[in-house]
């Protein structure tokens, strides 16, 4: 295979960003004439493998090993490096998830092969894919030039490709095994837990309703919550909303909060300071509603409304019910 997509397990399902990586592999594979394999590993390898074989790829590899049941950076880096060495793909694709950030640099160091991470775009240069990432506070874009002919690791930022575009097919399944040196695993993980009720998965949210200072006061938050409920969206905010104590810190998007790239980012009363923009400019569709026509965020908007958010929100909620 030319491209190996490494899946991440999210409670027995394929992580949303791994699906996007499969969509990316299919697009790049068809444009550059590259064959695709998928690797499912960990305790849910067979469930992920069953899901993955329904996609249009050459084959799906499943790897089960008792030392991979729980995530550890030591164990996962060792396993993926092993599989790359034995399967010899030219490119290894990942979603740019928190887990990948944690262990993929170690795979790169073990294999002495480049890890082009947080990639946001790709172009086909005479059959050779060229990848780019954002740099300098997301104000510039940089092409990345790998100094390697193969085993090039690439992780894609959320929404670089759309999982809506995955092509169905029927792939063959192949079970593989590797030796893992248990003594090299020097990390003992405990069970994951949620800090506060209603933790927010902003990084993988499809729809985000985000509020800024323009929402006026804390008492207006329930209006926004109703709109988000009707849309099936997560609520996010700019920093001033968190600093004022209107929402907990984990809702914050921007340089000191989360980076998001949803299908829709509906910005309500957010002016668009750069610290906020760096966290949301990768969103596929941006709608900005602000009563200040000079709010800088309008420059990033696909759709803009100059108007009073407090007047528009309830009517929009009603219209969507």
């Amino acid at each position: 295979m030319d491209i190996l997509v490494v899946l991440e397990d999210k409670n027995g399902r394929i992580h949303r960003m791994s699906l996007e990586a499969i969509a990316g592999a299919q697009q790049i594979g068809s444009e550059c004439g590259l064959s695709i394999g998928i690797l499912a590993f960990g305790k849910n390898a067979s469930a992920l493998g069953e899901q993955a074989k329904q996609y249009d790829v050459e084959e799906v590899l499943t790897l089960e090993n008792e030392h991979l049941n729980d995530y550890t950076a030591d164990g996962y880096a060792d396993a993926v490096a092993n599989v790359i060495t034995s399967e010899n793909p030219t490119y290894i694709f990942f979603g740019h998830t928190y887990q990948i950030r944690d262990y993929a640099p170690r795979v790169s160091a073990k294999l002495k092969r480049p890890f082009l991470n947080d990639v946001v775009s790709y172009k086909n240069e005479s059959g050779k894919p060229v990848f780019s990432k954002q740099a300098f506070n997301a104000k510039l874009i940089a092409e990345l030039n790998p100094n390697s002919d193969g085993h090039i690791l690439i992780s894609f930022q959320s929404a670089s490709f759309s999982s809506d575009n995955i092509q169905s097919g029927s792939a063959s399944l192949r079970s593989i095994s590797i030796e893992i040196d248990a003594s090299a695993i020097k990390t003992v993980p405990e069970d994951p837990f949620q800090e506060a009720a209603g933790g927010v998965d902003l990084s993988s949210a499809e729809l985000i309703v985000s509020i800024g200072r323009g929402i006026g006061k804390e008492e207006n938050i329930p209006l926004v919550q109703e709109l988000a409920n009707v849309m099936g969206a997560e609520i996010a905010s700019s920093r001033p909303v968190v600093d004022s104590g209107w929402l907990p810190a984990h809702h914050q998007v921007g340089s000191s909060g989360q980076t998001v790239a949803p299908k829709l980012y509906l910005a309500l009363g957010i002016s668009g300071a750069i610290q906020h923009v760096v966290g949301m400019k990768g969103s596929k569709n941006i709608i900005v509603i602000n009563k200040d026509p000079d709010a800088p965020l309008f420059e990033l908007a696909d759709y803009g409304v100059v108007g009073d958010v407090l007047e528009i929100i309830p009517k929009l909620t009603k219209a969507l019910q």
Partner: peptide
């Protein structure tokens, strides 16, 4: 040896075409 390098830097794409939605509140909604 370097495993990778920046091959080119450019300013992010120019601002998008923005459709400004206008009218009365019902038309906007």
């Amino acid at each position: 040896d370097e495993l990778q390098s920046f091959a080119g830097l450019s300013v992010q794409h120019a601002e998008k075409q923005t459709e400004m939605i206008e009218g009365n509140i019902d038309q906007i909604v």
